[in-house]
Design a protein around this nucleic acid. Sequence first.
DNA 1: CGGGCCTCCTGGTAGC
DNA 2: TGCTACCAGGAGGCCC
Length: 263
Amino acid sequence: MPELHDVEGFCAIAAKHALQQNIQQVQVEKERVLEGLSAAVLGRKLHNHTFTDAHRHGKLLFLRTGREGWLFLHFGMTGSLEMRDKQDAIPDHTCIHFQFKNGGGLCYLSQRLLGKVGWCDDLDAFLAEAEIGPDLLADDLTGDDFVRGLSEKHGMLKPALMDQSLFAGIGNVLSDEILFQTRLPPDTEIADLKENTLRDLFGPARRICRTLARAHRAQRDIPKHYLLAHRHKDGSCPRCHQKLSHKKVAGRTSYFCSSCQSA
DNA sequence: CGGGCCTCCTGGTAGC
DNA sequence: TGCTACCAGGAGGCCC
């Protein structure tokens, strides 16, 4: 689930419900998801503190704690973030439960345990160390940056779009959507594209991310004319209604319309 | 260098 | 019904 737009939704949940709440207890149900610190240390860092800011960068969510640092949450393939009301039970697959003084709580879920939760003192240093590039929706990211980044890569376009060190936030689903809306086949080689074609990806890519991020933030449905709304076996192209094709590209199942997306 | 394949995990589902 | 194989929206490592 968690690509840029999904994490934007989690970020909205955290921003709306979890900020300024006194953290009474941190229950770590699955210590495996912790990276670089123990449950005890995490508990000590957060006990009696509050989250003061929620920030998304690519597929990562950062929750600031006072001036002392940031908790980072990576969701892997199946992670999510849910608020728990006072009277509610802790949901299945909860790995970490941040329990607030008011009785409610914030739950980090990861069914397949492929996500990671950890701590960093400096957000920018952390991103640099992890070699995570600028967020695709960053205000200061330009079309020139985008074209330069992609044209320095070799091979297929799809894995380049998904390369978090280039631009952060695009995963398998978003890359399929971008390719669909720009009518490029999923196995397109970067070398076969003109610079203008690369440039023409920038606007749609950002628009798609922004639209889906807004939808997730507001818990609205995704637009019906998006591939994403039809992206499954048996799904049909929302443009020409032909049955969608799928094949492995760069190791990931890619959905596309063989009629609308042709070289 | 890129691409293919495997791995970390769990669980839902298609097929027998 | 029960079993198995396979697949899933991430990402890193290894080999060719």
